[in-house]
């Protein structure tokens, strides 16, 4: 084979790679169940990457089922293996963590991510698990839990960043995403009061 042909092949390889990456991203964006979940600001501007705003999803946890998961799970803060069961596409429908290999069929989607208890109530729950007769179970609320999906950042133009940051502080934002066939969240857009952020800031 002449070197010219090798050169052509070497030039085509990265172009094909980019096209495949493009196709994969496009496919993930148009397939899978879509959800829109309210968000709250969390250190809204990424210090290292100023164009990104960071946020957390305001999941509406089914407290009883979540506490049940905490009582039975061996690995609560594991990086892998835990999913969030999205039982309804209504954004205010209750969700709860489950093991990803759980065969329960009440979930429309099982979203992969990292579930953690962010308050200090877990030790109290563990004491209760060991001695249920003499201890009382702590009362959990939504703010005690956190489920990170890996899409908790959104790229925005710098001149709108502070405005969007303020809106996030007022809890007016929501993120629309899809759950792909592998169970990961694929970000679609950022919304404010039901409108994509681009349209919203124009007004």
């Amino acid at each position: 084979m002449k070197i010219d042909k090798l050169l052509i092949i070497a030039l085509i390889i990265p172009l094909i790679g980019l096209a495949l990456m493009n196709f994969h991203a496009e496919y993930a964006l148009s397939n899978g169940k879509a959800y829109t979940i309210p968000i709250k600001g969390c250190d809204p501007r990424d210090i290292l990457k100023g164009h990104y705003i960071t946020y957390r999803f305001k999941w509406n946890y089914d407290i009883d089922k979540t506490v049940e998961f905490l009582k039975t799970s061996d690995c609560i803060s594991c990086n892998s293996g835990n999913c969030l069961c999205l039982a309804d596409d209504n954004q205010s429908a209750p969700t709860f963590p489950i093991r990803c290999d759980d065969t329960t069929n009440v979930c429309i989607s099982k979203l992969k991510g990292t579930f953690t208890v962010v308050s200090n109530k877990l030790p109290q729950l563990n004491k209760f698990k060991n001695n249920p007769e003499n201890m009382t179970s702590p009362i959990f609320v939504n703010e005690d839990f956190e489920f990170l999906t890996g899409i908790e950042k959104y790229y925005v133009p710098e001149n709108y960043a502070s405005q969007l940051q303020e809106l996030l502080g007022n809890n007016e934002g929501a993120i629309k995403f899809r759950v792909n066939h592998q169970g990961w969240a694929v970000l679609i857009d950022l919304f404010f009061n039901g409108k994509p952020w681009g349209e919203f800031v124009k007004k």
Binding site: P14, L18, M21, N22, A25, E26, A28, L29, G150, I151, K153, Y154, Y155, L187
Partner: peptide, 16 residues
């Protein structure tokens, strides 16, 4: 090519 990867990441909000 590196810039293109960043561009696709930006357009599709890919995070990894």
């Amino acid at each position: 090519i590196l810039g293109s990867i960043a561009l696709i990441g930006q357009v599709y909000h890919l995070q990894s």
